[in-house]
Write a protein that binds this DNA or RNA. Structure first.
Lengths: 132, 132
DNA sequence: CAGTATCCCAACGGATACTG
DNA sequence: CAGTATCCGTTGGGATACTG
């Protein structure tokens, strides 16, 4: 057995992966994370499991195609789990995995940042548009 | 003069804006923030001002079209500033504004998260792909 | 209810060429 | 060097119809 700690392995991972490099797989993962719907879906699951229809209602404006697609991608990447209850009609619940819960604070931070600083961004835009 | 504090106004903003709502302007801002290149550009400017060409080199694989486009959007939203030095040839430096520096930790967090948890995501994908 | 399957248009975004 | 402009293929993503 190797004697590296979890912390050491994390440090190693940070050296091995660099999103600034074009070929790095983190580029693709970054694309998944920096997705408008992904951020909203993860934020919507912050308070526990939710059904497909609940998510669709909560995240106003998302098409069911994009919602399903986003949920699949996040499930594949291990960020959320999908639980099917075989009733009629079928019931499907989505829930953040431990890995997804580790990501949650970051995603909430983006959403909150946008909501909190919207005014200052509006001011900046007004200045920019006036200046040109 | 109104007697609300900055803290109170921030609280107000969080109530007024909700990215879960379709018509909310934060949706659009969220789209800007959750952009692969935007995250990388802001991360690349973490250690101070950089020239256009330096950014292009640092963020491997970005086309100059996308780099310029991303820089313009971020400049318009007040996240970074553009300084032109009228020499021959022209020199242009980009630097995070105070607003951009407030966003920096969040963006770095995403990039770091991706780099740190890539392995676990790979494992999750292997499990998912095997199961189906 | 929770999907899958098509169709189809708009945008994203790369490659290339040109300008101050 | 730091852009802008054009072309053009690829993808994103909505609308609709259908299935277990």
């Amino acid at each position: 057995m190797v004697t590296t700690t979890a912390g050491q392995r994390r440090e190693q991972a940070k050296r091995d992966y660099d999103a600034f490099l074009a070929g790095c797989p983190t580029r693709e993962l970054l694309s998944t994370l920096t997705d408008k719907w992904a951020a909203l879906v993860i934020a919507a699951l912050a308070d526990g499991p939710h059904r497909h229809s609940e998510l669709a209602r909560r995240i106003a404006g998302v098409s069911q195609k994009m919602l399903t697609q986003t949920l699949r991608t996040l499930e594949r990447d291990g960020l959320l789990s999908r639980a099917v209850t075989a009733s009629v009609p079928v019931r499907v619940d989505y829930e953040l995995t431990p890995l997804g819960r580790e990501l949650l604070p970051v995603m909430l931070a983006i959403k909150t940042w946008a909501e909190t600083h919207m005014d200052r961004v509006f001011q900046a835009r007004a200045r920019f548009d006036a200046g040109s």
